[in-house]
Simulated scan of single mutants.
Amino acid sequence: MQRIPDAIQLTDLDNAALADLYAYPAAREESWLRVNFVSSIDGAVTGSGGVSEVLGTPADKRVFHLLRELAEVVLVGAGTVRAENYGGAQTDARLRRTLYARGVGGHPEGDPPPIAIVTASAGVDPEHRAITTARTPTLILTTAAASAARKRALAEAGADVIEVGDHVIAPQALPGVLAARGLRRVLCEGGPQLFGSLAGAGAVDELCLTTAPLLTGGGARRISVSHEAFARQMTPVHVLFDTDGTILTRWVRT
């Protein structure tokens, strides 16, 4: 029988203690794929306007930024990039060097993590801010069958275009493709379809889930969407709560 961890008050944790709670496993040769989501109490992944930003609380934003500081790459689907108007990751170089020196994440030179966009069709505008504002070149994870003209335009715009499959992208292949480039500490920020495909393929090592203190109703999707049902046993690692009612949980694959 699993033991539920004791809840911790978020305001009792300084930044170093919080980073320790969310530390990636140390000295790993293989990837560790972490997924981060926020949802309402009634399970909605988006609020009014169809974006997740309206669910964000101060506690969620604090952890969201920390997870980016810890990560070596941010993995996201093209639909989420467009819906959430993604830009390049904005991180703190000094903090990332400190996290790397402590062995919990970050980067030895303080460079921000690249955004890795999953799109079988290479369907990203070369002038999208996810590419134009990136301090570390954006990765486009696509297929051999995608338009050669699109891939060329993305490469000319400064993106690193990587063919993962012939016609489709196998989700279980993504961690290995990133690890081959030295990017093992992976943070996936969605969307639900990408999360569902990764979870269904058994590629998700960890889920960080924020529950915002809101009921939203409507027809918003769950955080995980897939064509087939699956069951993946997860173990709770910690439960944090903030004074406004936000609950932050971390789950790892059993």
Rank of each mutant, 00 (worst) to 15 (best):
G47H: 01
D205H: 13
R34A: 05
H128S: 15
G49W: 13
L66Y: 01
R184N: 13
S31H: 14
H227F: 01
P192T: 08
S39A: 14
R253K: 10
V76T: 07
R82V: 02
A153G: 05
G217C: 09
A17C: 02
E84L: 08
A157M: 10
P112W: 12
E206C: 01
Y86A: 10
A144D: 12
V239T: 09
V104I: 12
F241L: 11
S226G: 09
S197L: 08
P108V: 15
L70M: 12
S224M: 13
V54Y: 10
L174F: 00
R3N: 11
V45P: 01
A122Q: 02
D12T: 08
G219R: 13
L139A: 03
K61C: 07
E29Y: 05
G196F: 07
R250M: 01
A130G: 04
A17V: 01
R150S: 14
G158W: 06
D160Y: 03
A89F: 04
T138P: 00
A120I: 03
N15P: 00
I115G: 01
L13G: 00
A101P: 00
G87S: 10
Q9C: 11
T46C: 01
R96H: 04
G79C: 05
Q9M: 07
A179C: 08
G202R: 12
H227L: 09
A149V: 07
L214V: 09
H167M: 06
L154P: 02
V104P: 02
R68P: 01
R222M: 12
H238C: 06
D60H: 03
S31V: 05
R150A: 09
N15W: 05
L10C: 02
G50A: 11
